[in-house]
Computed example of a mutant assay.
Amino acid sequence: MPAKINRLKTSLKAGEVSFGCWLGLADSYAAEIMGGAGFDFLVIDGEHAPNDIRSILAQLQVLAAFDVDPVVRVPVGQTHLIKQVLDLGAQTVLVPMVESAAQARQLLRDITYPPHGDRGVGYAVSRAGAFSRNADYGTTADAQICLLVQVENLRGMAALDDILAVDGVDGVFIGPADLAADMGHMGDAMHADVQATILDAIARIRAAGKAPGLLSTVDAMTDPALEAGAQFVAVGADVLILGQTARALAEKWIARTL
């Protein structure tokens, strides 16, 4: 049996637009709720959420019951971390703070089996290979792994064209918050200079034949990004949804007693 078809990778290669949500609660019960919400993809965040390898596993397991594509964001682009999440069964990996073509090339080696890459061959005892039930996983896995790199500071932007020239990178994700901070506009991703940089990057990514993406919870950012060619767009985060809804509910009822 070959590796499962990666629907998100297939969709991005076809030029289709996918909408998703961030999972920052680091909890499988919350992930199960989000899994049935109807998004195209969900990002299990290992960078800014209190996730470890076991909590990532638990969320991948519950999301397997739903028609949604999980993406795992590793905390940093290191070979051993990428090896672990791939063996857990992740097929799409998002790597933060990519700043050079050399870094992108190493990440490509990290997701690829020998002789062309550095991924350890342990699928016979891994969830990815269905614990030896999927005998063809090793020969078919590489084609179904999707590598998404985050370009989110000025160093990355300066190297964007070089990163885009790396064959095998499926998409480039722009991080508005980090980019805004690096441009001197902390907390103001809607600043005109930041937005101009984002839209220019999206156009360049799309022109290079890669899939552009970003996280945007503001329509005033999301709509222009989609018009510029963004393909994988996270439009919310479970932490924000819970926090905002809870605050609004409390305010509604407490206000009545004042």
Rank of each mutant, 00 (worst) to 15 (best):
N153W: 00
L154G: 02
R155Q: 04
R155H: 05
R155C: 00
G156W: 06
M157I: 01
M157A: 01
A158Y: 02
A158Q: 05
A159P: 01
A159M: 05
D161M: 07
D161Q: 11
D162A: 15
D162H: 14
I163L: 08
I163W: 12
L164S: 07
L164G: 07
V166Q: 08
D167K: 14
D167G: 01
D167P: 04
G168P: 00
G168M: 03
G168S: 06
V169K: 01
D170T: 06
D170L: 01
G171I: 02
V172I: 07
V172L: 02
I174K: 08
G175F: 06
P176L: 07
A177K: 13
A177H: 14
A177Y: 13
D178G: 13
L179G: 00
A181C: 06
A181H: 01
A181V: 06
A181R: 13
M183I: 05
G184R: 00
H185N: 09
H185P: 00
M186L: 15
M186S: 02
G187L: 13
D188P: 02
D188H: 10
A189M: 15
M190F: 02
H191E: 12
H191L: 12
D193N: 10
V194D: 07
V194Q: 11
V194G: 12
A196V: 03
A196C: 00
A196R: 13
T197K: 05
T197D: 02
I198R: 00
I198K: 00
L199Y: 10
L199S: 12
L199V: 07
D200Q: 15
A201V: 05
I202G: 01
I202A: 02
A203Q: 15
R204K: 13
G209M: 05
G209C: 11
K210V: 01
K210I: 04
K210F: 04
A211I: 02
G213R: 11
G213C: 04
L215C: 12
L215N: 03
S216R: 13
T217D: 01
T217E: 03
T217C: 09
V218T: 14
A220C: 05
M221T: 11
T222Q: 07
T222W: 06
D223H: 10
D223M: 08
D223C: 09
P224R: 13
A225F: 05
A225M: 02
L226M: 04
L226E: 01
E227L: 10
A228H: 08
G229K: 01
G229P: 04
F232M: 15
F232N: 14
F232S: 12
A234L: 12
A234G: 15
V235N: 09
G236M: 14
G236P: 10
A237L: 14
D238E: 15
D238L: 15
V239Q: 14
V239P: 03
V239W: 12
V239G: 02
L242G: 13
L242W: 15
G243P: 10
A246F: 09
A246Y: 13
R247K: 13
R247I: 03
R247M: 11
A248M: 03
A248Q: 04
A248K: 03
L249F: 08
L249H: 09
E251M: 10
K252Q: 15
I254R: 11
T257L: 14
